[in-house]
Computed example of a mutant assay.
Amino acid sequence: MLEKIEKDKMFVSNQGWLRSRFHFSFAEYRDYDNMKFGVLRVLNDDIVHPQSGFPMHPHRDMEIISYIVEGEMTHKDSMGNEKTLHRGDVQYMSAGEGIYHSEYNNHKTDDLRLLQIWILPPRKGLSKIYDDASFGYEERKNRLLHIVSDEEGDAKVKIHQNVNIYVCELDAGRNILHSIKENRQLYFVQIEGTADVNGLHPQGTLHVDSGDAIKITQESRLHISALSDAHFLFIEMKAH
């Protein structure tokens, strides 16, 4: 089953320095019928304007992943970590029993765009962890790049929860196929460009544009055809 979520139907928050599109109920957006998808609790498509950002603030009992789409993001936290990340880079923070952090766009002229992803941990009180990884364009060009896995997986960034995150930048006219294991589900985000998803499926092909998403359940494969240069990410997890 494929359920498309159009970006124009998502809640958008504009605080001046920050523009966010919320995939799920979060902050000032309240929708008790749209709280999560499996263990995926938050997915925000954020644009942070130059020389602004999120000041130091607390989190606990959440696994937080940032995927940088454009620009640069500078992270600082109460564990002493400080890092500036760029397009294609990934940052992970397990808030555990409690952590403070800030995220800033210190660039003078360019916006920062990132996907902010919150995953529910398998249990409360897990150890605090900070990690990040840089990936080159060639690593995700016309191939699926495994950027996040659980502790037994093979991705560079490992989290406590049993999820996998993949990204790809697929040239126009190219196709890619991913097999979905039994009792697993996917949340697919079209970051840039346009694509058709699951062509030749009995349910029919879904066309997605930049910002759209798809909830994918009870399927055995994911087939993406790029109609233009397409940049996408998907989160694979246990079916709920």
Rank of each mutant, 00 (worst) to 15 (best):
G96R: 00
M73T: 06
N81F: 11
L206S: 11
A226L: 08
I5P: 04
H201S: 06
L85Y: 00
C168R: 11
H207Q: 07
T109N: 15
V69T: 04
P55G: 15
K156D: 02
K76G: 13
V167R: 00
V39T: 00
V148Q: 06
F135R: 07
D89N: 09
T205N: 13
I147F: 06
N175K: 11
R21C: 14
E236G: 00
K36S: 12
L85F: 01
G204N: 01
A95T: 06
D45W: 01
K7Y: 09
D31Y: 04
W17Q: 03
D45A: 05
N198K: 11
E82P: 13
Y187C: 01
R60P: 12
D110I: 04
S20H: 05
F232V: 08
V69G: 01
M10W: 09
H49I: 15
E6T: 14
R30A: 11
G38N: 00
I119W: 09
Y130P: 01
S149G: 02
E97M: 15
L112T: 02
S127K: 14
D212P: 06
H146Q: 11
H231L: 05
D45Y: 08
F234W: 02
E82N: 15
N175Q: 02
G136I: 06
E219F: 05
K83Q: 15
L120D: 03
L126Y: 03
E63Q: 10
F24E: 03
D89K: 01
S220Q: 15
V90K: 00
L227W: 10
R41I: 05
Q51V: 15
Y130M: 03
S127R: 11
N81L: 10
P55S: 03
L170E: 09
Q218V: 12
I5H: 15
S134V: 09
Q203K: 10
I117A: 05
E72P: 08
S102E: 15
T109G: 07
H57I: 07
Y187S: 00
G98R: 13
I65R: 07
R140N: 12
S220W: 07
H146I: 07
I176R: 13
L227P: 04
G204V: 05
A195I: 14
S134A: 11
V48M: 15
W17N: 03
G88D: 09
L85H: 03
F188Y: 12
V167W: 09
S94C: 05
P50Y: 13
D196P: 12
N175L: 04
K4G: 08
N164L: 01
I147P: 10
D111S: 07
S220P: 04
N34W: 08
P121D: 05
G38H: 04
F11P: 01
H207V: 10
A27W: 13
V48S: 14
A172K: 05
M56S: 13
L170N: 11
L43C: 04
M35P: 06
L115A: 00
N183Y: 04
Y187W: 14
T109Q: 10
S102F: 14
